[in-house]
Amino acid sequence: MILDVKNVSKRFGGLWAVKNVSFSIAENEIIGLIGPNGAGKTTLFNLISGYFPPNEGQVLLNGEVISNLPAHKICQKGLARTFQLVRPFPDLTVLDNVAVGSLARYPRLPEALKKAEEILEFVELDKGKKRFGSELTIAERKRLELARALATEPKVLMLDEVMAGLNNTEVNEMLKIIRAIQKKNITLVVIEHIMAVIMSVSDRIVVMNEGEKIADGIPKDVANDPTVIKAYLGEEELDLA
């Protein structure tokens, strides 16, 4: 197992944002993490990536406990993430944005810049790489954020709603990139709100509701799981096409 989440919990004040969640991910899987708004998906991401430590439980990367490490160490160990509200460096160029990521593995700048160029080509953002982070469209920002995380050469990459707010063409391009990332032998955890999209790309789906894991399985089984359907009912019509 490349990533083991063992009974993690996080409390804010009196509220359990994440409660006793466990799951494991095998190498090179794509895991979809879904759940209604406020289910605790992003909090779980924050726990795993070291943004804050869990109150209880452990996270293991490749068998090594990482849940007591600060965020930058976790990244260096090979786990990278993107943020739901994208945070590109607005006053740095696209290339420099990605180079900041590459520098984690290639301390010398010329090398890091070369690697950054390769990654930009990979996510098809190489045109206009001299533009500033603040000049990009939403779709480009999401891709830049992905490229930057990818540049740290992670073993596990966690994507927080990289497809939210994109149009159909852009979603399809992003899916293409996600599949290509998998081919690079990188394990992916993907939070997504658009169920249809995540079902098509994931090997396995983990469903959360009110801070707890309520289902874990292959997409087809999860889609037919009555607890999952019930959790989503209050929210919106099921869109599992």
Partner: peptide, 11 residues
């Protein structure tokens, strides 16, 4: 530019 993002990139 963004400290949280910087940390997430191993800094």
């Amino acid at each position: 530019e963004n400290e949280i993002a910087a940390r997430s990139l191993g800094i």
